[in-house]
Nucleic acid binder design. Structure first.
Length: 362
DNA sequence: AATACGGGGGG
DNA sequence: CCCCCAGTATT
C-alpha cells in the first residue's frame, strides 16, 4: 500500500505543520538546550519506557553527578543503580555504564557520530540511535517510538498491528520518507514525538484543536480510539514474596539479587518465594533460613503486607520482621549481610523495599 | 517471533 | 478496581 497517493505537497505540509505546531507548543525541557551527544544519550535512555514527568528529575541528578562520559565510565555501578532507583528497567543503567566505559576506553572519549555506529553500543537500539544521530549530528534518520506509531497510524489510517515485524517496517519506512521533506531532521523528530505526547495522546486526543484534523484519516473516519492497532496483551503472573526482615539494633540483613529475575543487582531482604500466599510464619517452607530464625531470632510478627505491580507480574509481598537481640554474635544465613542504616540507604533497592523501609522507621 | 524487564498515571 | 503507556536484549 502506498501512503503517498496524495500529492507531494501534502507530505511537505505534514512535516511543516508538525514543526510549526512544535514551535508554539513544545515544552521547555533541559535536554532541548544541548547538542552534547552525551547529555542527549543520557536523556534518551532515561526516557525509554518512561514519561517526561518521571524522567526529568533523574536527568537533572545524573547530569549533576556525572557531567561527562568519562565520569560515568569511572562511576561505581552500585552508585549508578542507586541513582537509577525507582526508574525501573535497571539494565538500562548497566548498559549505559558498559557503553560509557567503551567510549571512554576504546574510543578515546569520542562519542559515535552516526546512526550505524551508535546502534552498536549496548542499550542503544533503533530509536535511541536515531534520536542521538538526528538531535546531536543532524543525521536525517527518523525516530520511531510509541508516539510516532500513534501519530502516523492515525493521520495515515494505518491499521497494521504495530507489534508485528512487518508493521514496524511499514512505519519506519513511512517515517523515513516523511523526514526527507524536512530540512531540519532534529526539529522534525522532536516535533512528531512532542505532538504525540501532547496533542495526539493515546486516550482522548485533542482533535478539535488539531492542526492536522482535516488530513487525519482517523479523525475523518472516527477511528482515533482504534488506532494504533496493538494486539498483544501481557499475561500477568502472580507471585508471592515472603520477606524475612532480620534486624539487629539499627542494622538490617540485606542481599544482592544475582539470579536471573527481576531487579538484578538490586538489594533486598531474605526472600522466600512461595506458590501460594502464606498466612502464618510457621507455614513457610522449612529450610536453613527458617531454622536460623527459630534458633537466633525473635519473630515480631507480620509487620507489613503490600502488592507491587509490574507490567508482567503482580507481586504480593509480606514482610516478617525478625529481631536478633543486640550484642548477640550471629552468622547470617543465605548470603545475607548486616547493613547500617546509612549503608542501606546507599544501596540500590526495588521501590517495594524502599517503601517498606519508610514504613519501618516512622 | 515471542518474551522479559519497572514503574507510574488516569478513568 | 480496571485500564493504559513505552525501547532493548535475550531466547
Amino acid at each position: 500500500m502506498d501512503w503517498f497517493s496524495d500529492s507531494d505537497d501534502a507530505r511537505i505540509d505534514f512535516a511543516a505543520t508538525l514543526t510549526g505546531w512544535y514551535e508554539h507548543h513544545k515544552r521547555d525541557l533541559p535536554w532541548r538546550h544541548t547538542r552534547n551527544p552525551y547529555f542527549i544519550w543520557l536523556s534518551e535512555v532515561i526516557l525509554q519506557q518512561t514519561r517526561v514527568i518521571q524522567g526529568r528529575p533523574y536527568y537533572e541528578r545524573f547530569v549533576a553527578a556525572y557531567p561527562t562520559v568519562q565520569s560515568l565510565a569511572d562511576a561505581d555501578e552500585r552508585d549508578l543503580l542507586r541513582l537509577w532507583q525507582g526508574l525501573g528497567y535497571y539494565s538500562r543503567a548497566r548498559n549505559m555504564h558498559k557503553t560509557a566505559k567503551y567510549i571512554a576506553g576504546e574510543l578515546a572519549g569520542r562519542f559515535p557520530e552516526s546512526y550505524a555506529e551508535l546502534l552498536k553500543m549496548p542499550g542503544i537500539g533503533t530509536y535511541t540511535a536515531a534520536a542521538i544521530a538526528s538531535f546531536a549530528f543532524d543525521e536525517k534518520v527518523a525516530v520511531v517510538d510509541g508516539n510516532v506509531y500513534r501519530v502516523l497510524a492515525r493521520v495515515f489510517g494505518i491499521e497494521e498491528d504495530i507489534t508485528t515485524t512487518t508493521a514496524k517496517k511499514t512505519f519506519s519506512t513511512l517515517a523515513n520518507r516523511l523526514i526527507q521533506q524536512s530540512d531540519n531532521p532534529a526539529t522534525y523528530n522532536q516535533a512528531i514525538m512532542e505532538f504525540g505526547a501532547i496533542q495526539c495522546t493515546p486516550v482522548s486526543p485533542d482533535c478539535l484543536l488539531c492542526p492536522l484534523q482535516q488530513q487525519c484519516r482517523a479523525y475523518l473516519t472516527g477511528k482515533q480510539r482504534m488506532l494504533p492497532v496493538k494486539s498483544k496483551k501481557t499475561a500477568v503472573r502472580e507471585r508471592f514474596f515472603n520477606y524475612i526482615v532480620i534486624r539487629q539494633g539499627d542494622r538490617l540483613a540485606l542481599k544482592e539479587r544475582t539470579q536471573k529475575d527481576i531487579w538484578q543487582h538490586l538489594y533486598d531482604f531474605c526472600l522466600i518465594e512461595t506458590e501460594e500466599p502464606m498466612e502464618a510464619f510457621r507455614e513457610l517452607p522449612t529450610g536453613n533460613v527458617l531454622n536460623w530464625v527459630l534458633q537466633e531470632g525473635i519473630l515480631k510478627g507480620l509487620s507489613d503486607e503490600r502488592t507491587h505491580i509490574l507490567s508482567h507480574q503482580k507481586i504480593r509481598a509480606k514482610f516478617w520482621l525478625v529481631e536478633v537481640p543486640e550484642g548477640r554474635k550471629v552468622e547470617l544465613p543465605d548470603g545475607l549481610t548486616f547493613c547500617e542504616q546509612s549503608e542501606t540507604e546507599r544501596l540500590p533497592k526495588p521501590i517495594l523495599v524502599v517503601d517498606y523501609l519508610k514504613s519501618l522507621r516512622f
